[in-house]
């Protein structure tokens, strides 16, 4: 499933949060979005998910405008922030709700959740706690699992490595990479962790003040040097 950002612009008053004339994310690519704070990474993801209105332009998912069609929801998994979680649910109930929405049977759900046991580390299921009582790290894990659980064709994650311990970061990075390599999932992840992004991404987009500064193919981590050099010069 390819994503096309066509003349996409988001403006808040006089401030341009995002301005991308043309960007195509081919099906099966694993794209890393990097940039300083306020670069427009989260804004771009929110526009792709139709959570905010574009000032100009549109986002096409599988050649359909996301603002005009709902078809993209059935194959897109995503997690941006706490507003994706249902705080008064336990993790079991949250996953069961997602299963209902996507028509996943209970047996399939259990099978899929078993695949995330390494990430959950016995801290998520069976704890008899509501999501609002979990730590930030565990809430992040629940959100990521909720996005991947549906076996999406497009996966969008905003700073997925935040709040995670080092082991969990490695597990998440490995899972994203596996999803992309084995199932051809189109992935867009934003992160401040350049090493992880460089390790797993096939393409790196560098945003600065809403504009796409660099679009680098990342064959076996080839883009990391240029990325590091850019941020060093900005420092």
């Amino acid at each position: 499933m390819e994503l096309i950002l066509d003349n996409l612009k988001k403006q808040y008053g006089d401030k341009v949060a995002l301005d991308i004339p043309q960007l195509t994310i081919e099906s099966g690519q694993l794209v890393g979005l990097v940039g300083n704070n306020g670069a427009g990474k989260t804004t771009m993801l929110r526009l792709i998910l139709d959570l905010i209105e574009a000032t100009e332009g549109c986002v096409l998912s599988d050649r359909q405008d996301v603002a005009k069609s709902s078809e993209w929801k059935s194959y897109t998994g995503s997690f941006i922030d706490g507003r994706f979680l249902v705080d008064f649910y336990t993790p079991e109930e949250y996953f069961a709700l997602i299963a209902r929405l996507y028509g996943i049977s209970d047996s399939d759900l259990n099978e899929r959740l078993a695949g995330f046991s390494q990430l959950m580390h016995d801290e998520i299921l069976g704890t008899k706690k509501y999501l609002r009582d979990f730590s930030q790290g565990n809430r992040q894990k629940v959100g990521i699992i909720g996005a991947m659980l549906i076996q999406p064709k497009v996966l969008l994650l905003d700073e997925p490595f935040n709040y995670l311990d080092p082991s969990s970061q490695i597990v998440v990075a490995r899972m994203i990479h596996q999803l992309n390599q084995e199932h051809g999932v189109t992935v867009v992840i934003s992160s401040h962790n350049l090493n992880f992004v460089a390790d797993i991404s096939t393409r790196i987009l560098l945003l600065e003040k809403g504009r796409l500064i660099k679009d680098l193919p990342n064959i076996e981590g080839s883009a990391i040097a240029e990325i590091n050099e850019y941020f060093s010069s900005e420092a």
Binding site: L49, D50, L51, S70, K73, S74, T76, S78, I80, D81, R83, F84, L85, V86, D87, I98, L101, Y102
Partner: peptide
């Protein structure tokens, strides 16, 4: 409203 993004980004009419 507390989980509106979770609603809108999913097939939840």
């Amino acid at each position: 409203a507390n989980y509106c993004h979770g609603i809108w980004s999913r097939p939840w009419p």
